[in-house]
Design a protein around this nucleic acid. Structure first.
Lengths: 195, 195
DNA sequence: AGTTTCAGATGACGTTGTCATCTCTTGAGT
DNA sequence: ACTCAAGAGATGACAACGTCATCTGAAACT
């Protein structure tokens, strides 16, 4: 037996799923409220019962993606058999893989909309906190923030460049995201040894 | 006396300027063909005489931005009084400054549209080639490609994070783009000394 | 049982990108 | 000098979109 609240929550989830699927398959232009409603089994006006805006629906999709990434980061940090450097590499590659296999979702995760400029940043906070803790295990509390910011920035840039098709250019000797990530982690790990 | 071809070229330029201004001031949503036409002194259908598509107009705006950045890179490389590290810092900050003061244009420069996935990448080539030459002066031909790719990736990520308002977070100890850039350049310069 | 509430459906409106068509000026060919 | 093709721009129209106002029906509450 399904209550009304349960049904409403189910539709909300169906709307989020539909929006995410349309985003993955057809890009941002394919995410129209009419298509989202149709895929979720409702009509074009129904989303307005759950989200005040189309933008809010997209923010919710991005927020959910940040949450699942936060879960992965948390699990990665708790992994017992991995060194700190390996965990860092894993975290960065988790981010980069989203850029590879869900490029449109990736862009959404890093696009702060004019509506609420801090909504997505708040959603990203847990992922970043988890990552920061792992970095602190490698370089110490002192420089953790600086190097964590540098690592996340670089991974973000690598993913972004790869998404715009500028990274696999043979002009750059075929460097790939894995190479760059390894180089960066090695440099920082070496730096921490010298300190 | 203005010939017909000159007049057409002038309108084309006016359309590009109008689109760039609207993009800077109001974001991508403000760039509508009607508004572009109005600002350029023509009507909504006129752009179709110069660009097959709205997307093509935007690509042309991004291409022009890459060209001017390429000019700046070239001038920077020829600057006599600067060290290689300073030139690298300058090049990276030139890119980051676009992200700071023209964030919408910056996003456009790194968004490869579905129409021609290589159009913007081709436009970016000269900037990257100039930058690659400067990096080679610092770390040698051997590792230039790898480190140039890493530097550009990182700068791109720093600018992107700053544009989404996730960098100036006090949670990260107030690290700013300049700090990260300096840290990165120092690390690579140090690495090259050890080799 | 009667009433309130709320998810969803439906109709309508303004805006946008795009196409078809029309006008008119320019520049070349005779 | 006259003609005429060419092309830049204006205008009208259309489908699709986001959004709002209104309506309907069923669940929840008193």
């Amino acid at each position: 037996m399904i209550s009304r609240a349960e049904s409403a929550a189910a539709t909300r989830r169906a709307l989020l799923d539909a929006a995410a699927e349309l985003l993955d398959s057809g890009g941002l232009d394919a995410v129209t409220l009419r298509a989202v409603g149709a895929r979720a089994g409702v009509t074009r006006g129904a989303p307005y019962r759950h989200f005040p805006d189309k933008e809010s629906l997209l923010i919710a999709v991005g927020t959910r993606a940040w949450d699942t990434l936060g879960d992965r980061m948390q699990a990665l940090r708790a992994e017992p058999g991995l060194s700190a450097a390996e965990k860092i590499r894993g975290g960065l590659m988790a981010l980069i893989d989203i850029g590879r296999f869900q490029p449109h979702l990736y862009k959404l995760m890093f696009s702060n909309p004019p509506g609420d400029p801090t909504a997505l940043a708040r959603a990203a906070q847990r992922s970043q906190t988890e990552f920061l803790a792992v970095v602190a295990d490698l370089v110490g509390e002192q420089d953790a923030r600086r190097y964590a910011a540098l690592l996340i920035s670089s991974a973000n840039g690598i993913a972004g460049l790869e998404a715009s098709g500028q990274l696999p250019d043979p002009k750059w000797g075929g460097v790939c995201a894995e190479d760059l990530t390894d180089t960066l982690v090695d440099m920082i790990a070496g730096k921490s040894r010298h300190a």
